[in-house]
Design a protein around this nucleic acid. Sequence first.
DNA 1: TTCTAATTGAAAATGATTCTCATTACTAGT
DNA 2: ACTAGTAATGAGAATCATTTTCAATTAGAA
Lengths: 171, 171
Amino acid sequence: MFEHNSRHNNNDETVLPIPSNNETSYFDESWTEDDLKQIIRKMNLKVTPQRILILQTLHEGRVHITAQELYEKVQKINSDVGFATVYRFLKGMAESRVVTELRMGSMPTRYELTPKKHHDHMTCTACGKIVEFQNKNIEDHQEKVAKQYGFKLTHHVLELYGICTSCQMKK
Amino acid sequence: MFEHNSRHNNNDETVLPIPSNNETSYFDESWTEDDLKQIIRKMNLKVTPQRILILQTLHEGRVHITAQELYEKVQKINSDVGFATVYRFLKGMAESRVVTELRMGSMPTRYELTPKKHHDHMTCTACGKIVEFQNKNIEDHQEKVAKQYGFKLTHHVLELYGICTSCQMKK
DNA sequence: TTCTAATTGAAAATGATTCTCATTACTAGT
DNA sequence: ACTAGTAATGAGAATCATTTTCAATTAGAA
Ligand SMILES: [Mn+2]
Ligand SMILES: [Mn+2]
Ligand SMILES: [Zn+2]
Ligand SMILES: [Zn+2]
C-alpha cells in the first residue's frame, strides 16, 4: 500500500509523503562539499573537517538517527571525531533549526535534517515504525489557537501514537 | 485578558480553557480518602499510605509538576516516602493513563492528572508559561491522518511553542 | 604568517530516572 | 483477627544520555 516509497530499517520504517526511489539519502539532491560548507557558515560556525563529515553523514544516512548512531557511522570513516563533537554540533544545528530533534517517549533523541516542507510523525508503539505526514489543516488550526491566545508560534511538536496495519493483524 | 481564570507560579502559568476560581486544585471536585483508594485499586495496585499521599498531593497541588517537586511536597507531610516510590507510582499511573506525562524539550518530565476532557499545551519559550487548550478540529484531523495510513491511534502529543503576549511586549 | 578566539577529544561530571535488595506491609483466605 | 504469600517500600547504587571541563589544536581574519 505505502510500502513502495518507504525506506526501512528493521524497527524503524519511514514512509514519506512524497514518492522517492532513493534508498540511502533523505533528500533527492546530493550535497557537494561546498554545499556542506555553506550550511555550516550560515550557522555562524567555523568550517572544520569534523563538522563537514558529521553533516555529510547525516545527509547521506538514514533519517531519524540518534547521536550515538551518527557518532558510530562517523567513527568508521574518520576516527578523529569525538562524540562530544557530534553532540555539540547536533545541538547547534538543532538551535539553528538545521536539524530537528525527535523526542519519542523516553528513548534517546533522534535527529533529522529539517526538511523544506514540514512534516509530523506517527509512530507504531508495537514495532516502532515511523510514518511521516503533512496536514495543512492541522497546521492552520494550530495558528488559530496561537492567535486566539496571543502567542507567536515558533515551532511545534505533533506526534501520533498507535498501532500500524501489520501490527493490528499480528494480534 | 485571560488572566482572570489562570493559576500561575512564577515560571509556569496555566490558563484553563474552562473558567475556574479554584486556585489550589486542578479539579473542582475534592477527593475523599475512599476516592483515592478506589483510583489506586482500579489500577490493580495495593493501597498504601504512600500512594494515597502521593495521589492526594498530586490532586491538590499545582498542575504540571515534576517528580522531584512532588517528592518534596510529599516529604514535608510525611518523610516516610522515598523518591523511588514517587517515581515508581508516577510511572505506574502514567501507564494506566491516570496521569499524563509532559515532556517539554529536555526539561524534566512534568505530570498532571489526566483530565476527563483532553487538552494540549502551548508553552512560552521565554517565560515558561503554559496555556492549555482544546481543539476538536485538530483532534478530528489527527484521526483522519491515522485512518489514511491504517493506524489505530492510542494517544498523541501536541505541543505548541512560541512567545506569549507579555513576553512579546517585553522586547 | 601571525594572532586569537573557536573548536576539539578525552575524560569526568551531571542529572533524571531506574534498579537492587533486604525489610516491611497489604490483603485474600482462613 | 491471624497468617501466608506476595507486593511494595526506601536507601542507595546503577544507568545512561547528555553536558561540561580543560588543555591542546585549528580556522580564518588581518
Ligand atoms: Mn521525519
Ligand atoms: Mn495540562
Ligand atoms: Zn507496527
Ligand atoms: Zn512568556
